[in-house]
Each structure stands twice: as C-alpha cells, then as structure tokens.
Nucleic acid binder design. Structure first.
Length: 465
RNA sequence: GGCGCCAUAGCCAAGUGGCUAAGGCACGGGCCUGCAAAGCCCUGAUCCCCGGUUCGAAUCCGGGUGGCGCCUCCA
C-alpha cells in the first residue's frame, strides 16, 4: 500500500507501526450545524482508506471525534437560547444520520471533547511543567511556539513576518502562539472547572488529548499510524497538534498525514463565509445517499472536486449500469469468490486509493459480465461469480449493496407502484394480441410518469428515470 | 507577500520517460427488438504556450499564461 504523505509531500510505502495493526484518527466535525458536502467528502475519503486497509487484512482502529466545545457552538447557544447539550446532541445525531445515508462505516471510537477534559488537563499541565506553555494575567494559557524547535516542520507553512491575521497579539509572547486554555469570560460563556481555573479548552488541544487518551502507542516514535482531515486543517490545526504532542510526550503524533481535497462550487471553495455551502441533508432530498456517495467518491480524494449536478447525473448513470447487471443476477445467493477480480480491484486502491483505476476495473467487469450473460443466460456459476464480485465492490467501495430493484424505484410510493404494475400487465396483454398501438400508448403514458420500461427475457421491468 | 496545488477529447477523469494516451457521461453508426429501452460492438485527443534535457516527454528542468487553496473559524 502506498499513501501520499502531506508532510513529506510525496507518495510513500505504508508500513504500520506495529505489524498488521493500523490506528487512524480523523478530525471530525464541530457540531454547531448540519454536515455539508465537504464533511461528506472527507468522511468518504477516509472511509475508503479504512475499507482498503481492512480488505488488505489490517486490523484497523478508526477514531473520529466530535468537537463539542467551540466558539461557534457558543454563538449558536446565544442565538437560539438552547443549551450546549441540546445543540451538540442534535447535530451529532444529524451528522451520524447523514453519514449513515452515505454508507460511511461508523468509527470504532467517537470521542467528544466534553468527555475528554481530564486528558486535556494532563496534557496542558505537562506542557506547563516542561516550560512550553505560559499563562496570561487573564487566565488564558498559551503554547509558546518559540520554545519548540520543531514547530512548523510538519506543514512548512509558517510565515516569516509575523502572523498578521492572528488575534490577541498584544498579550501573547509570539503572534503564532495559540490557546491551550481559554479562561472563563463570564456570562454567556461555557466554562468547565479545571486545575487552571474555570474555562474551556482551545481547539487544537482537544485532538492531541483525545488521541493520547484513546489510541496512542506509548512506547513508539509515533503515537498513531495515520492522522487525517481536510486540507485546510494541515495548518495551523495539525501543526499545533503535533507541537503539543511532541513537546509533551516526546513522540510524534502520527507517522502519516493525509488530507483530502475540497468540494468546490463553481470553482470556488464551498464555505459558510462565501455563502455557497451545501448541506448533505438537502442533497439527500434530491438524490439517494448511495448516488451521492458514488459521485463524491469518483474523484481522487486529494484533488479538488467541483460539485455540479450535471456531473452527478453522469456519475449516477455509471452506477446504474452496475445495478442493471445486478438485476440480471437477481435472486442468486450462492457465493463463488473470484479472487482474481478482488485482486484486480484492490490493486489500484493500494496505490494511494486510485479510485479512477478502480472504477475502470468495475466498468470492465460490468461490461464483461453483461457480455457473458448474453452468451450464457443460464450459467449459474457465472451468476454466482458476478454476485460475489458485486458484493466485493460493495465491501471495498461501499456501493452496489442495495436491492437492485429498489435502487431504480426509490421515491415511488406503493400506490403508484401498483398502478405501474397494472399498466405493464395491460401492455403485456396488448403485446400478446399484437396490438402494438395500444402497447406503445401505455408505454408512453408511463414515460409521462417518469417510468421507463425494459422488455427482458424474464418479462417487463421498469425504472424511475 | 509567504507556502503549496492544478491545467489531458464537448464534460468528468487516469496516466509521473518508451508498445496504438485508461475508464465513464454525452454525440453518431451498427447488432439485438414488433418498435423501444437495456446490453454489446464501432467511432473521438499531436496532453495550456514557449524553450531545454534525452535516442525518446503529457510525464523531467526553466520561463510564461490561466485557475484554485492555505497562511483568520472551516472538512
């Protein structure tokens, strides 16, 4: 397996810290709003990584946190009058529901910042003891960047001429210093008791502390194998996490750093501030989760993805072909593993998740399978092999696992379905009597309803357009 | 300003020095079909521009042009 490492800026061979075990931590969402397509893309990217590693036989421990203390959450509390818990619980559930619709495997551990405070206290205390942190008169505790000789080596994105944009520069020693602990600001703030007084943790400390608490190796050079997140998190977030962990524990945080590319809208980054963000929930009203997943999946995780409905529809048609094949082998249950195909599909995924090549393998498989079925429509062995391969595709890529008929009929209510079946029956009778005029009239009527017919050797089947 | 990414057919998108530059969508032609649909077959690119290295470059180097991201909360 090779992986593109953001730190080294090149593709390198992946070797876990400990033989067949892989520990992954991915930065999860700050739960103050619904998940947008960017969250979906990040989740899908690392879901693919996880599935690939698992298919290769690694035992993966996958952790994704919820940031449930943050300025934005506090803002939301103030604007809605709701409690922290009400807000974060609501958005955590909403996030999980969205991710489920996208067929993202749940993380093995889903830590929350609010449940990991002790670990943060420990880390902050260690940094203070070792002289890497200092306290301001207002009670805030900052990380002293100048004390860390390694600072900025991870991302190489620091600025020579001061962090102009950074806030609170007057009181900090160095503009690049970042908050480990924010002292309580009184009314309207969210405050926790701590050895450093009432307050709340800074953003960066959360991840370092949760990694340490839940999955860190203690006796190795690196605490975990892979740390992932969106491309924007590399600096300062990941740089700061690395600094905290390295200074406190003398271990690097992660052996490999992976960052997924953005979802753009009209060539621009999708973001709240640009007002062009697109919620997963809203997208799901228009397209099934699996279709959305397949679309977001089909661009390599590192590259930016320019969201367009046109491309999504083109991508859906590609997935449709897999499901039409699945319809042809419907009701076949017995498995017949095709090792050769599995290897062929896994091969490109081993190469830094080369999804384009993997999907080309799927396309080729669909084409060949259709051809062989045309030649040998009753070959049971063949059908068993095909269904097994589709199952493997689903296992590795998370698509193709739905019922083949339901896939094409999603969003059609029961009553309509009955009506469709009746019309098809009428048309079949007309066809039998060679009354093609009537048959075509019925077909047109269905077409008006958005229903396409296919006459197959096993009878007429229908699909929603 | 600092750091970095990208530019391949109408669209999406692989390819990182060497047989005829993957695959999908769209378009057109064919087989199949009562006609369709589906499926299968066929059809399309001198790889942004200029220069260099090399026997040989989409692929490496230099210089342009254009687009984007991070540096401030952000997946």
């Amino acid at each position: 397996m090779t992986i593109y490492d953001s730190h080294l800026k090149k593709k390198i061979e992946f070797k876990p810290i400990k033989d067949k075990e892989v520990r992954i931590y991915v930065c999860g969402p700050t739960v103050y709003d619904d998940a947008h397509l960017g969250h979906a893309r990040s989740s899908i990217s690392f879901d693919l990584l996880r599935r690939t590693l698992e298919a290769l036989g690694y035992k993966v421990t996958f952790v994704k946190n919820f940031t449930d203390i943050d300025d934005k959450i506090i803002n939301k509390m103030n604007s809605t009058g709701k409690s922290l818990k009400e807000i974060t619980e609501h958005y955590i559930n909403s996030y999980l529901a969205d991710m489920e619709a996208l067929n993202i495997k749940r993380a093995d551990i889903e830590p929350k910042a609010t449940e990991s405070l002790e670990a943060m206290f420990e880390l902050i205390q260690k940094l203070i003891d070792k002289g890497y942190a200092y306290k301001l008169s207002n009670g805030d505790i900052y990380f002293d960047v100048s004390k860390d000789k390694e600072y900025c080596k991870l991302s190489n994105k620091c600025q020579e001429d001061e962090g102009i944009h950074r806030i609170d520069t007057e009181s900090k020693k160095n503009p690049a210093d970042f908050a480990l602990w924010k002292a309580c600001k009184g009314e309207g703030d969210v405050c926790f008791d701590s050895p450093f007084g009432k307050g709340r943790p800074g953003w960066h400390i959360e991840c370092s502390a949760m990694i340490k608490k839940y999955i860190a190796y203690t006796d190795t050079k690196y605490q975990i194998d892979i740390h992932g997140g969106g491309a924007d998190l590399f600096f300062p977030h990941h740089e700061n996490e690395e600094a905290q962990t390295f200074c406190a524990y003398n271990q690097h945080l992660a052996k490999y750093w992976m960052h997924n590319g953005f979802v753009n809208i009209n060539g621009e980054k999708m973001s709240k501030s640009l007002g062009n963000s697109f919620f997963v929930k809203d997208a799901l009203k228009h397209y099934p989760g699996e279709v959305l997943r397949f679309y977001l999946l089909s661009t390599h995780y590192k590259a930016p993805l320019n969201f367009s409905e046109e491309d999504l529809i083109a991508s859906k048609k590609r997935l449709d072909k897999l499901y039409r094949l699945k319809k042809r082998v419907y009701a076949i249950n017995k498995k017949q593993q095709d090792k050769e195909f599995e290897k062929k599909l896994l091969e490109p995924m081993k190469d830094n998740l080369n999804i384009s090549k993997a999907l080309a393998v799927v396309d080729e498989f669909v084409k060949n399978a259709n051809e062989e079925l045309d030649k040998n429509p009753k070959d049971k062995n063949l059908k068993q092999k095909i269904i097994s391969n589709i199952e493997f595709i689903n296992k590795l890529l998370g698509v193709g696992g739905s019922d083949a008929y339901k896939y094409f009929q999603e969003g059609i209510d029961k009553e309509t379905k009955i009506k469709i079946e009746e019309l098809i029956k009428k048309r079949d009778e007309a066809k039998k009597e060679k009354n093609y005029e009537l048959a075509d009239k019925i077909r047109n009527e269905l077409k008006q309803m958005g229903i396409m017919l296919q006459d197959t050797p096993n009878g007429t089947v229908w699909e929603k357009v």
